[in-house]
Design a protein around this nucleic acid. Sequence first.
DNA 1: CGCTGGTTTGACTCAACTCAATCTCTGTGG
DNA 2: CCACAGAGATTGAGTTGAGTCAAACCAGCG
Lengths: 219, 219
Amino acid sequence: MRFVSSFKRGELVAEAGSTILSEGTHSPHLYTVLSGWAFRFKTLPDGRRQILNYLLPGDLLGLQGSIMGEMEHSVEALTTMVLCVFQRDKLDSLFEGHPGLGFDVTWIAAQEERMLDEHLLSLGRRTALERAAYLLAFLHSRAEGLGKISDKLLHIPVTQQHVADTLGLSIVHTNKTLRKLAEKGLIQWLDRSCEIVDAEGLRELADWEKPRERKRPLI
Amino acid sequence: MRFVSSFKRGELVAEAGSTILSEGTHSPHLYTVLSGWAFRFKTLPDGRRQILNYLLPGDLLGLQGSIMGEMEHSVEALTTMVLCVFQRDKLDSLFEGHPGLGFDVTWIAAQEERMLDEHLLSLGRRTALERAAYLLAFLHSRAEGLGKISDKLLHIPVTQQHVADTLGLSIVHTNKTLRKLAEKGLIQWLDRSCEIVDAEGLRELADWEKPRERKRPLI
DNA sequence: CGCTGGTTTGACTCAACTCAATCTCTGTGG
DNA sequence: CCACAGAGATTGAGTTGAGTCAAACCAGCG
């Protein structure tokens, strides 16, 4: 991890299930995920929830709040997490003093945009089964990119409610859809987590290609 | 518009309907929209298309390609457009030499991310009628932010096929949905364009709040 | 031992899709 | 000047994917 002397730094540990940032809030911080899983989401006034994306080690958290003042989404931890804390008001001085890091922040933002584009394609144009396959393949691919997998199977720490809120489906239908994936031998559902059995099979079903590995900047 | 001496510059005029960037392509350019409307989209191998977002004056186009090498989506013009052309390989030197501009690029990227978040919420959790209302209110709000509206009504230059591909619906159902909005007196459908009659009513129906106006950097 | 949160299942309903025609422009060639 | 072709918009009929409701199941835990 690079050292940025002009930043005040600290670490934050968040429990699974805890809310790290809330929509409508002005957080003075910007975070980098050091370990653990989380997700970003928005809710409609009547309570309908949509998960926007997942956060894994290396991801930035709270950039929007830093740039636009107010958070437009919330973030909740799926597992225990360790975060690296930055002062958000120092962001422009980072661009001044460390243009390379400024570029890296933009790189990460562009990366996030690419993921959101794929999620949109999925929500808009894939069937429920394809969507589920895509989501799990996507999460598998992200974890793989972090070297978290090695030879053993990946366990994704989500409930079916999380999957439903990501795919834009009801829990009941999500359950039936995941069951189909399990029957095809692609996944196995465990107690509040999903084991990826055949990532390649999921990708094929969703007609999705794993993105090429890119050098990820470490901030 | 700010002048950036270290960049080679030029202007590009694109016809309505022309493809400006293609998925899978390596474009040597990065653009800024000076005038006109366009949209970004992705397609599944079997042809299903999803529109990701719309581009209006002030938006960046091709940042992903600049940062990640290959375009992951395509861009097509809805009207005649004028674009300002930059050399993409100069991007990191921009961060070096003009940190303020580097920050602005990140600002624009964060803004785009915010819009995609809202689209995701819409696709995942809103009904067809709410989705259509949201989309039109959103486009109205964007045009309004550019001062394009004044006292007269806004005409959005899209076909029902575009709306369908944005909302993730079939054309037939999109047609029936737009008809309902017209019957409520919120819009009027014209020849390949939509006139916004009651933007506030659309926002209410979608339960969506217009984002606060933010100072937009001009690159 | 009885909660509670998460998962499963079945029955019924409804929103959205497909198929198939029709209609209306607009531009074009004879 | 008219006929025809093609793109976009409409409409109706029948089908189906996904939602709702409701009940049951299951494991961990105070």
